[in-house]
Amino acid sequence: MHSTEIHTYLHRFFKENDCEILHGNEHYLTVQLTIDMDKRIMNRPFYWRYIESVNETPNPAQLTLITDMQQLHNGMKGEIIHLGSPRLHQLFQVTKEMGQFVKMYEHIEDTSEQLILTPWVGVNYKVSFTSHQTKEMLYSVGINLMTGAVVKEFQETISMLDLSDQSSEQVFHLPYIITPVRALDRLDAVITQVIEGEDLTWVEEAEKRWRKDQAVLDYFYEGQEPKPECYEMEKQAMEERFKPRISVDVVNGGLFYLK
């Protein structure tokens, strides 16, 4: 993410969260937080507890976020925001929490005839492959709740459609045949299949290294019975270091009514 992308992101993030942007240009912005946003990101629970207990007028903070470091030299005061900055990381986290579940409808131009929209469940999965190293993959999959058909790159597909939070009028939403719970189980199975098709040489590599280190350790304590505590501890550390693991997280997902 370049600084311009970050800047665009910040703008959209605060706008969508109803935080007024007081002033700014392409290098910085000063934003008035809402009470809710202040509670989420300013990390001052005692202030809020106090204000609420004495019924005082709350005074949510203003933030100046600078995306171009050059501006600092011009004497501007504020937080520098870049890809590694804790603040941005925090906003990413808030974005994730606040954008987990959606229900969206494909927009229909006004027509005289009645149109039918089909329900889909779409989920964005993040799969992590972890041993002494890591790799992650994103899979976006969707399932048609009428037919059970599964499509990949679901997010990419819907991002080209005109979707909205509100249903258009004169539109009939088909009641689903496959329940969302069943659909999610089906998608889980799809992801499992995808994972099984991935290159698993990293597992072999990790296990090879693990065995090698274990052999060195065993050799060091050869003939010692019972093994001392530090042997067990090192063995444990080795397992934590090398044991191959695969985990699946959901970034977000939702219910979609599509043409």
Partner: peptide, 11 residues
């Protein structure tokens, strides 16, 4: 439900 813009941003 959550805001759809934040949904897309999150992805």
């Amino acid at each position: 439900w959550n805001n759809s813009v934040l949904y897309n941003l999150s992805y």
